Every structure is written in structure tokens, then in C-alpha cells.
Simulated scan of single mutants.
Amino acid sequence: MRQQQTQTHYFYALKLPNEVKQKLNEYCQSIQSEFPFSRWVHKEDYHITLAFLGHAPQDKLETTKMLIKAAISEFKAFPLTIQSLGTFGRSDAPRIFWAGIEPAPSLVDVRAAVFSACEQAGFKLETRPFHPHITMARKWQGDASFPLSTAELEKYFTTPISFQAQEIVLYQTHLDKSPKYEAVAIFPL
């Protein structure tokens, strides 16, 4: 019998506090019937991606851990606010439905430190501009087009959620599980 090999992927992310995950999950549950996406993200998998590594050999992961620890040593916990909704992909059939983060210089600085440490360790990272967000659902499945414009989405999330960003986490992906992200290293701010 041939074993199916699934490649494990790794990424660094900002962990959300449990109470924030719960509030986001409650919000998602309240709107799921209006927005037929194929997959809603498990509440334990909510996070803000800082650097996606993809498949990674153990020695390079160990190097990133060392470099990340040094790179973020001067950072302290900082406030963030989830304040908006948005989509990636086609406006009529989005690929990703997300909650957006209010612009925060501390988040940009932490992301730059993590990103740079991963590049130093030899990873080739995505070069798209940083757009901090929390993925809530994937793949539009509606019979009709996605019903909200960008401007309407901004008004749809009426209660901002504020929290302290306190931990950077190295996550490992398990595509066959739910939740599918496992914390393999944690770096407190």
C-alpha cells in the first residue's frame, strides 16, 4: 500500500487572544447564512500572517527561530483593532473573505522584523505588499454574485474588536485536520 505524502507548510503569524477568536467566530456564525462560502475558517485557526514559509527543512526552521527571537526582542505587546471586512479575488465571487486590521505602525514594524529574519534564514518570501487581515472564509459558493461592494463591506462590520498583540507563533499546517494550524514555537512580545 502506497502512503500518500502531504507536504507540511509553515508560517509565522500574530496570534489572536482566545476572546477575540470567540467574538470573530460569533460574528461569522451570525452572517454565514447570508454569505455562502465553501469553507468557514475554524475559530482556532484565526491569525494574522506575517511570513509564509511553505515547505521548510528543520534546520532552516531552527535558524528562523533563533533569528526571530533576536529580531523581536525589543518589541513589546501593542494594541490592534479589527475594524473592517474585505475580500480578495473577483468582486462577484471572492476567493477569500477577511476581517481587516486598523493600520498600526507597530504591526508593520514587527512584520518587517519577522520577514527579514526569515529571509536571512534563506527563505524566498512572497513580495506582495503587506495587507494585515484575518481570513474568515474561503471560496464563494453563492448562486448569485457576492452581494456587497467594498464600500458596503466597510459598513457591515459595526463593532470594532480591540486587543493586545502579545505573541508571534510559528504554525505548522495539517490540511487533514480541523483546526488545521498547530503552534510549534511561540515568541512572546
Rank of each mutant, 00 (worst) to 15 (best):
P132N: 10
T159K: 10
F11W: 01
P179M: 00
A77C: 09
P147G: 13
A151H: 09
K177R: 05
E154C: 10
F75C: 07
R90M: 05
K155L: 12
T173D: 01
L148M: 14
F35Y: 13
P132C: 07
L16S: 06
R138V: 04
G89L: 05
H9Y: 02
T159S: 15
Y12D: 05
W140C: 09
T63S: 15
Y46F: 13
E167V: 04
M66H: 13
I168V: 15
S116W: 03
P129W: 05
Q3P: 08
F157C: 08
F35I: 10
K139L: 00
L16F: 03
S178K: 00
F35W: 11
G54Y: 07
A56N: 07
W140A: 08
Y171M: 01
R138N: 15
T150G: 13
L153K: 11
E102C: 09
F130I: 12
H42E: 14
S91W: 02
Y171R: 00
I48P: 12
F11L: 05
S73G: 13
P79W: 02
T173A: 05
T159P: 11
P160W: 09
D92M: 02
A113W: 02
L24S: 08
G142T: 05
F37W: 07
P94H: 11
Q5T: 10
H131V: 15
L148E: 14
R2I: 10
I31V: 15
L125C: 13
G86E: 10
K43W: 03
E62Y: 05
S106N: 14
K69E: 12
L80Y: 09
K60F: 07
L189K: 01
A151L: 11
E119F: 00
L148F: 14
I31T: 11
A13M: 01
R95G: 12
E74N: 10
H9T: 12
L61A: 13
A144I: 05
H131E: 15
G100V: 10
G86V: 07
G122Q: 09
A165S: 11
F75W: 04
L14K: 01
H174N: 11
T135K: 01
F37Y: 13
R95V: 11
E19M: 03
